[in-house]
């Protein structure tokens, strides 16, 4: 999938306006790991892929919270499979970042010391079982809208990883929808639980697309480089248009009194988003920021002896093999 830089070649840096490089991008071609590329392109991608990977890894926590309390064995098996997928997505992405000359261990260190971030959406708590439905349907639904264009990203290894991730996310979104559908067609208490979850997750899901276009100055360069294909607002609108009819099918309401169909534009109009909340969560003041980071650091520290023991065992086995006399050749 990735096509690593197998042999350690020196990284070749070129000017940001290099004609050959831009010609590949303009022809909708792909940049591969051993190509010369501008330093800013490389760093931009490492940062983006690393923070995407961190989001997948931290994203295991809100759902892992419900594995032991899933309402049936079937739901538990599904939830475990989904959380395993998130781990897998993180690993595909760290591998893609490594093709650009980053080290996975270094990227993890940057996460653990708070120098690189993960998506703010995972700093919200999962209070009820219905949150597993709302996360799958809304959060993974928004992720798919973000990720599908990345399958055509100009950097080959990232694009290939995203193809695989998108296939797997489809299961995530459907299982979330099914959880909410089952609840909303159950007892009044179950339906109320589903509605409460949707009420809490709707606005944070819209914030996942980032600030409005006029305050996203970095978007232009990412677009020119074929890393980003659509603006924050375009993707947000696509998500709203896709989701409103699904909410109707669920017989649940979206918590926005201004939500209305605009026949002239062919889009659903939505109310103003309070971005103050997003900025507060990103600054570290969300409900679960401290808890998520503490848990991640603890898991990493508690796994240190396993990493060291496995390496010591491998080193010992290598030494034993070298000490053995070579097998006789007949």
């Amino acid at each position: 999938m990735y096509g690593n830089d197998f042999t350690q070649q020196p990284i070749v840096e070129i000017a940001e306006d290099d004609a050959d490089f831009q010609a590949i991008l303009d022809a909708d071609g792909r940049i591969e790991p051993r190509d010369a590329m501008p330093e800013a392109y490389r760093k931009n991608l490492i940062r983006q892929i690393a923070q995407h990977a961190h989001s997948e890894i931290i994203g295991m926590q809100p759902e892992g919270n419900w594995i032991t309390r899933a309402p049936s064995l079937k739901r538990k098996a599904i939830l475990m499979a989904k959380v395993q997928d998130e781990a897998g997505h993180g690993l595909y992405l760290y591998a893609a970042a490594e093709t650009l000359g980053a080290d996975r261990a270094d990227l993890l260190d940057l996460l653990h010391t708070g120098r690189q971030k993960y998506s703010s959406i995972f700093n919200y708590p999962t209070l009820t079982w219905a949150d597993m439905g709302a996360i799958g349907w809304l959060v993974d639904g928004a992720a798919i809208v973000n990720q599908v264009p990345l399958c055509r990203c100009s950097y080959g290894p990232y694009a290939r990883a995203m193809v695989r991730v998108c296939k797997e996310e489809s299961f995530h979104q459907r299982q979330g929808f099914e959880i909410l559908h089952t609840l909303s067609h159950g007892t009044p208490a179950q339906k109320a639980m589903a509605q409460d979850a949707v009420d809490r997750w709707w606005w944070p899901s819209l914030m996942m697309f980032g600030p409005p276009d006029e305050s996203s100055p970095n978007t232009e360069r990412s677009m020119r480089w074929g890393i980003k294909r659509f603006s924050n607002d375009e993707l947000r609108q696509r998500f709203v248009d896709m989701t409103v009819p699904q909410a109707q099918a669920l017989d649940l309401t979206l918590p926005d009194p201004q939500l209305s169909w605009d026949a002239a534009t062919g889009h659903w109009e939505y109310g103003a988003i309070d971005f103050t909340e997003l900025f507060e969560v990103i600054k570290g003041n969300g409900p679960c920021n401290a808890q998520r980071m503490a848990h991640r650091r603890r898991a990493h520290e508690e796994g240190a002896w396993v990493r060291e023991a496995a390496l010591a065992y491998a080193t010992k086995r290598d030494a034993e093999r070298e000490a053995e006399p070579p097998a006789a050749v007949a």
Partner: peptide
């Protein structure tokens, strides 16, 4: 700056190092 880059949405895009340069 914040962007929805990467799958799960809004993350800072400036003031974030790509690597530390430290060998781990």
């Amino acid at each position: 700056d914040l962007s929805a880059e990467g799958g799960h949405g809004a993350v800072p895009t400036t003031g974030v190092p790509a690597t530390s340069g430290r060998a781990v």
